[in-house]
Amino acid sequence: MSRLTALLALALCIAACGDAADKTRLTGSGASFPYPIYATWFKAYGKANPDVLINYQAKGSGAGIRDLINGTVDFAGSDAAMSDAEIAELEGGVVMIPITAGKIVIAYNLPGVDAPLRLGREVYPRIFLGEIRRWNDPAIAKDNPNARLPDLPITVVRRADSSGTTYAFTNHLSSASALWQRGPGRGKTVPWPNNDKIIAAPKNDGVTATILQTPGAVGYVEYGYAKFGQLPMAMLENRAGQFVLPGAESGRAALENAAVPDDLRVWIPDPANDGAYPIVTYTWLLLRQQNPDTGVAAALRRLVADCLTSGQTAAVDLGYLPLPDAVVERSLSALDRVR
């Protein structure tokens, strides 16, 4: 008899555990650049809506797009939106929602230099091309008259893996510098010049760690990584000729008044606004227009609308940029197309 009750209890437990199946599961994968803010949003949303389970894997933008095309996920995250060729592959069409934006900073490790380094528009592309090879080069010294620049070789640290961060960075360099445009150009990976002072490290954290450990290193990372890694960030000269530190204000200035195309693929490779920080990028959530499951579609709409509205306040604390109101409005109306 006791065995029977044990069995019953077990069956009950299985039924109770099986209860999770009644929840709506949303699976996503893709970009790692916005992962910290996604994690915050999804956790908060899951707490407020216990009937929805969200699972996001930060595998990289390319992998996320492939997963969406193959139908293994309900949504994807991408720092480079989706290319026309990729959109053509996705059955049922795509809705691309700009969900947050970020800054890419040039971080460096220069012992003995305390004030933020100022890098001119002609200078930083040439540093990353390996043309300016020592820190006391007159081109750098010209904009930093008060800094005691050391006689150190410049070690450029770049991303070893293909990444949306590299895309946004090289997209900016290609717009700002003809030299760069003719050389490596733009892409998630680009043919970097080969010399022993250009080294590559995996992921944002790998680049951050390598800069931290290498005196004389300079590299590009997402703002949050430099901020939390306590790396000094350079002031960059923007199109208006001002030297600007990366920050919430200068980032917001860069996003303002940008033309937003109908497909919401907004690129701001070289913002012209007054006081704008020059290297900013949006990141997108990619949703299917025709979802196989209407429940999933409804849950996705609710989740994304939540991120677009109340979620935006979390952006600044995590080092991201809240979307301009115009973009939020356009994104919300685009969201209605998700069925």
Partner: peptide, 29 residues
């Protein structure tokens, strides 16, 4: 260091097959 160079120098960055496979595969077209 993941830099495609061929040199005898011990202190120069270099690259290996396994490393470039691991780093490039996730985003490869």
């Amino acid at each position: 260091g993941n830099s495609n160079q061929i040199t005898l120098s011990l202190f120069s960055p270099a690259n290996t097959l396994a490393a470039s496979l691991a780093l490039n595969f996730p985003e490869a077209g």
